[in-house]
Design a protein around this nucleic acid. Structure first.
Length: 927
RNA sequence: GGGUGCUUAGCUCAGUUGGGAGAGCGCCGCCCUUACAAGGCGGAAGUCGGGGGUUCGAGCCCCUCAGCACCCACCA
């Protein structure tokens, strides 16, 4: 075996072995366990968020597979309408072409080409993470099966009146030329202005002043509104004012919507370009005056001077014209919320169009009930509230998009404007007995990507067919995803799942935190702080990393800043930590529902952990090589000592902790329990103890056998326990180990997950070894604090101790001598001069250090030790003297306080004796 | 404007029905002890954001204030 763990050498080989043997497919079993992967964008690449979530899913999947469940991890990718279309459009632009110049058919073909070319990237990266998805069942949200499901869902909802077509204001993206849903709009505060504009009264009695942040929309004003109770303007209501620059009379209306305290208390009403004004327009029967084209330039409805101007150019012009006309009263700086499209970053325009909507209320109600009644459980539970809040205020969902890449809406129109919804034109013609001369044309829009994603859990299992997989795996067990898509995706899956399968799509929703960089910043290309999970696995040179972070920036002027930051954060690039270390890091960082900061120092620590495990295995293999087992295959029992029984007890406890932590999605606690066992107990103590006993000349062959078997057996169990977290190294080491244990198996991943109750526990052994550890640590501490050379063997005395402890001392004398570097241990009745004491239970360990210590320094040290003891004593006494405490606290707590007091007082007496001894020594030596 | 979460060691974070403040990293000292220097042994370090309350007892429960983060929302 290599001395140092090298992840690159083992990982890829094991993965292709597992995949080629078909181990990722469901293997049968009584219970079913299934996770549907949140499908990543097909043309995307794996980022830290994916890697994090997929690691957690894979831990669950491997754990349940080993536990004997029939386990399916359903994977696949999403067609990601807008995102993918934008990428391909950009590629076309680079060659001087455009979507329009190519035409719909050719463009879609180009998108498919790009999908086929780049679509395997993310699956390939996913494999590097060791994910045990059933690749044979990989799906795509635009494949034929999904298409059938989408059509069926659309048609049924339409027939039930739950999908309708409506003309109303939508969020219009003037760059992408499509409607988007409320969720795809991100509003952020930006600096702007509040312009105060005079609207002259038609009767010539002065003017009213309105305040607006969007003066250009005055071209579409239909009224001015005031609050009905506003005494300042009461006489104005019902009057008319002149709309500046348009030269048209518009009415002054009264509406409760107006806040008299804001601005001037007069509001211009533009029903076609503002959601509030739209509602007011409906209430007051105002005309809708659309003044924009799809590009948000001024259209022919507006006065000639402004036609063809971009909305912001029009704003400048209008302000200039108002100023000229003396109608601009003043301009104030103003912060306002600006809506932008989450993909294009373009300022969204409320725009009047025909769109398709899902009537959501009837779907939302059962979806609310399902979570309320616990049919679906959120982990952590507080996300329920977020879900409820949104579901209770949910608006109809605009599902049509004016894009080309996506599921085409299954609706056709005839020239008379009739709508026909169905599978295809032929079916519709037959259904509606349409004559051949009736021309039908299909709706040119596609569906919101989330429409098909909402069907993912059941459509990937075969719905609308009644498949065996649906029967076996639906509802799926758990959905693992981020809070950012609870509304986009989780809620819609629940609604559609309930509607079309009559059942919830998943039993539990585990919401993960968001992966941020070490400084807590969101990772983004423009910040240049992206970490590529593959770089953490394979490592990357600093120069390559810098090149990667600064390539293809939208704002290239930031490249030098990013380069500097990158060089500072990673002065030596990134080392190759391997997949297992990355996975273990993710598990450790997966604390309940908060953002996680990814620090490279952390992954290095877990790479070291893998190395530790590697070397522990190497040690055990070397031991068994030098002292072969009595007989292969037929394993004799041997005579286990307390150390063997102790370590197995600890192993059982670690397994219990891990398993119960996994049941509540506490990946941090689960991995921590195994980490601590492996390093702090197994390697630091058990391997050391075993080493000594094995090399001692008087160790019986039966004990020797027991130790070797314990080493073998415990490591074998430990590797299985760690496998879901760190699959590669555990497989590699397990394969090296099992021939010695007489096991033949092709893979660890299909072995049973170890159960704590199969391991005998022994409290007496735990007491003995715990005592032994305190004895050894006590001597070590004295040695280290007094700067005694590590090689120097000490003569040690002891005093007191129970009969049991004296027995333990006798049993473990060899281990104490070796691990504490002690030459002799003898009982003494009186405290030797210049002795320093430690305590192991009731036993006092004394080390005479006459020639080694500096008495005054020792005295100071001893006095310093007294302070916390005195403090502790006072604190305990104040409790025990409190009659309320004695009468109200539980007996067990009182007993514990009394024990504590006894111990503290004993320590104080010991210390006092030492102080006296030291003083005497100093007196005798004339100090 | 409404809501959620957070504030514990220098840093990142655990702390599960209220009962002796923890881990990793970092730091300090000693050590290449035959599995591992990607290591071993030992150590220092916190008035648990401030204030108040409930309780025999509060990091944990209640109130309040402050700061940070995020989500939702139609104030021109």
């Amino acid at each position: 075996m290599e001395k140092t763990y090298k992840p690159g050498a083992i990982e890829s080989a094991w993965y292709s072995h597992w995949e080629s043997k078909g181990y990722f497919a469901p293997q049968g079993g009584d219970a079913s366990y299934c996770i549907a992967l949140p499908p990543p964008n097909v043309t995307g690449s794996l980022h830290m968020g994916h890697a994090f979530q997929q690691t957690l899913m894979d831990i669950l999947i491997r754990f349940h597979r080993m536990n004997g469940s029939n386990t399916l991890w359903q994977g696949g990718t999403d067609h990601a309408g807008i995102a993918t279309q934008m990428v391909v459009e950009r590629q076309l632009e680079a060659t001087g072409k455009s979507r329009e110049s190519e035409g719909r058919e050719k463009f879609i073909a180009a998108v498919w080409d790009w999908k086929n070319e780049s679509g395997s990237t993310i699956s390939r990266q996913s494999r590097r993470l060791g994910t045990s998805m059933d690749w044979q069942r990989e799906r795509f949200t635009m494949d034929a099966g999904l298409y059938a499901a989408v059509q069926q869902v659309f048609i049924r909802l339409y027939q039930e009146g739950l999908i309708y077509r409506g003309k109303r204001l939508v969020n219009w993206d003037p760059v992408l030329h499509t409607a988007i849903s409320d969720l795809e709009v991100v509003t952020e505060e930006e600096d702007g202005h509040l312009w105060h504009i005079r609207y002259p009264r038609m009767d010539g009695r002065g003017h009213v002043v309105i305040a607006t942040t969007r003066p250009e929309t005055l071209l579409g004003d239909a009224a001015v509104a005031v609050h009905p109770a506003d005494t300042r303007y009461r006489d104005l209501i019902g009057d008319t004012v002149q709309l500046p620059l348009v030269d048209k009379a518009i009415p002054v209306i009264a509406d409760e919507y107006v806040d008299p305290a804001f601005g001037t208390g007069c509001v211009k009403i533009t029903p076609a370009h503002d959601f509030n004004d739209y509602a007011i327009g409906l209430r007051h029967d105002l005309p809708l005056i659309n003044i924009f084209t799809a590009d948000a330039t001024i259209n022919a409805q507006a006065p000639p001077p402004y036609r063809g101007l971009d909305r912001y150019a029009a704003r400048e012009q209008i302000i200039a014209d108002l100023k000229l006309a003396g109608l601009l009263e003043r301009t104030a700086a103003h912060k306002l919320m600006v809506p932008r499209g989450d993909r294009s970053q373009a300022v969204i325009e409320p725009y009047l169009t025909d769109q398709w909507y899902v009537k959501i209320q009837p779907l939302a109600e059962p979806a609310i009930a399902a979570v309320k009644h616990g049919d679906i459980r959120f982990v952590p539970e507080n996300w329920r509230k977020t879900y409820f809040d949104w579901m209770h205020n949910i608006q109809d969902w605009c599902i049509s998009r004016q894009l080309w890449w996506g599921h085409r809406i299954p609706a056709w129109y005839d020239d008379a404007g009739n709508i026909y919804v169905g599978k295809d034109e032929q079916t519709l013609r037959a259904e509606h007995q349409l004559a051949d001369e009736v021309k039908l044309r299909q709706d040119s829009d596609v569906l919101d990507t989330w429409f098909s994603s909402a069907l993912w859990p059941f459509a990937t299992l075969g719905w609308p067919e009644e498949t065996r997989e649906l029967d076996l795996f639906y509802p799926t067990s758990v959905l693992v995803t981020g809070f950012d898509i609870i509304f986009f995706w989780v809620a819609r899956m629940i609604m559609f799942g309930l509607k079309f399968t009559g059942n919830v799509p998943f039993r539990e929703v585990y919401i993960t935190g968001l992966v941020r960089d070490a400084a807590g910043q969101k990772m983004s290309k423009s910040k240049g702080n992206i970490l590529d999970p593959i770089d953490l696995i394979d490592g990357i040179e600093l120069d390559s990393l810098v090149a990667k972070q600064t390539a293809g920036l939208m704002q290239p002027q930031f490249a030098p800043t990013i380069e500097k930051a990158t060089r500072k954060a990673f002065p030596r690039g990134i080392a190759a930590f391997g997949t297992d270390a990355l996975r273990f890091t993710f598990a450790q960082l997966a604390t309940q529902g908060r953002d996680i900061r990814f620090d490279v120092g952390r992954i290095q620590g877990y790479r070291n952990f893998c190395n530790k495990l590697w070397n522990a295995t190497r040690f055990i293999l070397l031991q068994i090589e030098s002292t072969p087992l009595a007989s292969d295959g037929d394993l004799p029992e041997g005579e286990p000592g307390p150390a063997e029984r102790w370590i197995m007890t600890h192993l059982a406890q670690a397994l219990t902790a891990t398993t119960s932590a996994l049941a509540s999605y506490r990946f941090d606690l689960a991995s921590q329990a195994l980490y601590e066992f492996t390093w702090d107990e197994y390697c630091d103590w058990y391997l050391e103890l075993a080493k000594i006993t094995l090399s001692a000349p008087d160790t019986s062959p039966a004990r020797e056998q027991a130790i070797l078997l314990t080493l073998l057996h415990s490591l074998e169990i430990l590797l299985r326990a760690l496998h879901p977290f760190i699959p590669f190294i555990t497989e590699e080491l397990w394969q090296k180990l099992i021939p010695l244990a007489g096991i033949t198996a092709d893979t660890i991943m299909l072995q049973p997950y170890p159960a704590a109750d199969e391991i005998p526990q022994d409290k007496a052994a735990v007491a003995e070894i715990t005592w032994l550890k305190s004895f050894i640590s006590g001597v070590r501490r004295i040695r280290a604090e007094r700067d005694i050379a590590p090689g120097k063997r000490l003569a040690v005395h002891y005093q007191g101790g129970s009969r049991e402890e004296r027995g333990w001392l006798e049993n473990n004398i060899a281990c104490i001598k070796a691990l504490a570097r002690v030459s002799t241990i003898s009982r003494t009745m009186q405290i030797p001069e210049a002795a320093v004491a430690a305590h192991a239970g009731d036993m006092t360990v004394l080390i005479p250090l006459a020639e080694l210590i500096d008495p005054p320094a020792e005295l100071t040290r001893l006095k310093r030790q007294m302070q916390p003891l005195a403090l502790a004593k006072r604190r305990i006494l104040s409790k025990l003297d409190n009659s309320n405490f004695i009468s109200k606290a539980p007996a067990a707590v009182i007993a514990r306080e009394r024990t504590k007091l006894d111990e503290t007082e004993k320590s104080i007496r010991h210390l006092e004796a030492q102080i006296e001894g030291m003083k005497k020594l100093m007196y005798n030596t004339g100090l």
